[in-house]
Amino acid sequence: MTLLLQLLVNAVCNAAIYALLAIGFGLIYRSLRFFNIGFGAVYVIASYVVIALSETFGIPLFASIPLGIFAGILSSILIDRLVFSPLEGYGAPTGVLLVASLGVYIAIVNLIALIFGNEIKIITKGMEPSFTIGPIIVTRIQIAQILIGWTGAILFWLSIRKNTLVKAIWAMGIAPELVIALGLPYKRMRAIVFSLSALFAAAASIITTLDVGIDPHVGMGALLTGAVAVIVGGVNFYWGWVSGASLIALLQAIGVWLFSAKWNELITFGILIITLIFRPDGIFSPKRRAEER
């Protein structure tokens, strides 16, 4: 029972990270309507910039982490400007953008593997300071995960409610040409979507790396977790993304308790498949609820 409790606490931490990934992925998926695998590359870049700065140049973490986030944002905007925007200008369908983003991912990940090697890199060495609350042990980094993840989710929710820009970004996914006709600048909105997405990816990436380290190939796993959370929760519904992320984390924790941590990916994709069969609009999709009433 203590084990289950501990696993549930871990699930809350993981949920926070998954929520960040879901928001980061969902922003682009929802507003630009394409499955951006390049998101995984941005995820990896942010952490490796932190590693390069802190290990090679000896810059302390409080300075290298913001720089890592900045590098993530910059690379995200650059990828869009150099690859996606021109393709879209030629009228490429979303399938082409998907393949292009896969290419971007492969190129960047292999470049990083070439420079830094394939093995796991760790930033913080030694044991994390931890706190014992009754039978449960929480590390410092886990508390940071919960704080950053959930504050990020709530801040984003606050800005989504009234901010024209976020409303317009939301609207952009439905009818981009209409957004333009109302006088909202498409290109700038696109840049903001990509930078916000990178901000969430970088936050999730760096905080995970501080905890367990990173190798160049984890980006794909992060991307897929985010994507499954968004699809399971319901693409059109912001709280659905966060709920989807929480659901994945919770079921993974139960999976670890009942079977083993090796089954985590199976659980993630099991949720995806079951959702797609029974509720293709997403489990938490509000539209369905309105119809059921």
């Binding site: 800005s159 009234k162 901010n163 024209t164 820009l165 976020v166 317009a168 609207a171």
Partner: peptide, 15 residues
């Protein structure tokens, strides 16, 4: 969405 003024467009505006 249409009739909010352009001024409120900055992502930092709500904060």
């Amino acid at each position: 969405t249409a009739c909010m003024p352009y001024a409120s467009e900055s992502p930092l505006f709500p904060f």
